[in-house]
């Protein structure tokens, strides 16, 4: 189910000078099976764009087409269409409200009209995907650690079985262990067939798991391509105030020093490239 964004613009409070988080003429398509990383610094419009993908915000110009249908169109079932795109907000642990983790995860699918055994299956399937200890299911979400609460919130969105999952900085504020675990869960969801849009500041993660990268700069789509294509334009990224993964930085430094290595996204890849360039036999 591709999401096609057609010449979309958004202006907050049109007519006032406050336009910092607006979007201008965004035009690209999120294809089935993508793990699209959306990068850009704070205020570049990433979160605004994310909220357009499931109709929480309505574009001031242009359209968002989900499966060929305008999600803000008059003749379509907007509610149903929007629910095919799940959205997890930043610091999502603060949206939990139910007495038990089970009930909280059930909130979304219940709103979709599910009940009984069907609902139960949904909740348990979503809970399994976020790898929490089984006894947490009947606990109060407020007894859990911050990282665990965030995973419950993710399960709450996954339980609605969206075809596209939009995640707004899902690892922000977590400790290294929490970051790794959640990144792995996202990776697994993607492998399980969910299209993912990931807003992230962590370039090393983006380089490792994304299939495509879109760079936003002051509300405009500045670049779109594979991680390798995008990160090979390191100078431009740095000019926008964005980080470049350390592996790429090293590749550039090595080439500047006369050692020809291609741009590499992971440590393993880079190790092979250095060994090859140095003439070290592979798998010594």
């Amino acid at each position: 189910m591709p999401i096609k964004i057609e010449h979309m613009s958004h202006t907050y409070q049109p007519g006032t000078p406050f336009k910092s988080d607006a979007l201008e003429d965004i035009d690209f398509t999120i294809e089935d099976g993508d793990l699209l990383a959306l990068i850009g610094h704070t205020g570049s419009g990433k979160s605004t764009l994310a909220q357009h993908l499931n109709g929480l915000l309505t574009p001031t110009a242009g359209r968002v087409l989900v499966d060929g249908q305008d999600i803000n169109g008059k003749d379509v079932n907007r509610r149903a269409l929007r629910q095919r795109v799940g959205l997890l907000f930043q610091y999502a642990e603060y949206q939990l409200f139910e007495e038990t983790v089970y009930k909280d995860i059930a909130f979304g699918p219940k709103n979709q009209g599910l009940s009984g055994e069907k609902l139960d299956r949904r909740v348990r399937a979503a809970f399994d995907k976020v790898h929490l200890p089984p006894e947490t299911l009947e606990k109060s979400p407020f007894e859990l650690s911050g990282g665990q609460m965030r995973r419950v919130a993710l399960a709450g969105v996954v339980a609605m079985e969206p075809e596209v999952l939009v995640l707004d900085e899902p690892i922000a504020g977590l400790d290294p262990k929490g970051r790794d675990e959640l990144t792995e869960i996202i990776h697994e969801l993607h492998r399980g067939g969910v299209t993912i849009v990931l807003i992230s500041h962590n370039m090393d993660d983006v380089a490792r798991i994304a299939t495509k990268v879109a760079v936003l700069e002051r509300g405009r789509l500045a670049m779109l391509g594979t991680p390798r294509e995008i990160f090979s334009r390191g100078d431009e990224l740095e000019a926008m105030g964005l980080d470049v993964p350390q592996t790429i930085q090293l590749c550039r430094a090595l080439r500047a020093g006369g050692l020809e290595v291609p741009d590499c996204l992971t440590g393993e890849e880079l190790c092979e490239a250095i060994c090859a360039a140095k003439g070290v036999p592979s798998h010594a």
């Binding site: 090393d204 993964p245 350390q246 592996t247 090293l250 440590g267 393993e268 880079l270 190790c271 250095i274 060994c275 140095k278 070290v280 010594a284």
Partner: peptide, 15 residues
């Protein structure tokens, strides 16, 4: 840190 991890890999390959 990524560079420390890379150093380990390279040392394992005899560099």
């Amino acid at each position: 840190p990524p560079m420390v991890a890379l150093g380990d890999l390279l040392r394992a390959r005899g560099l």
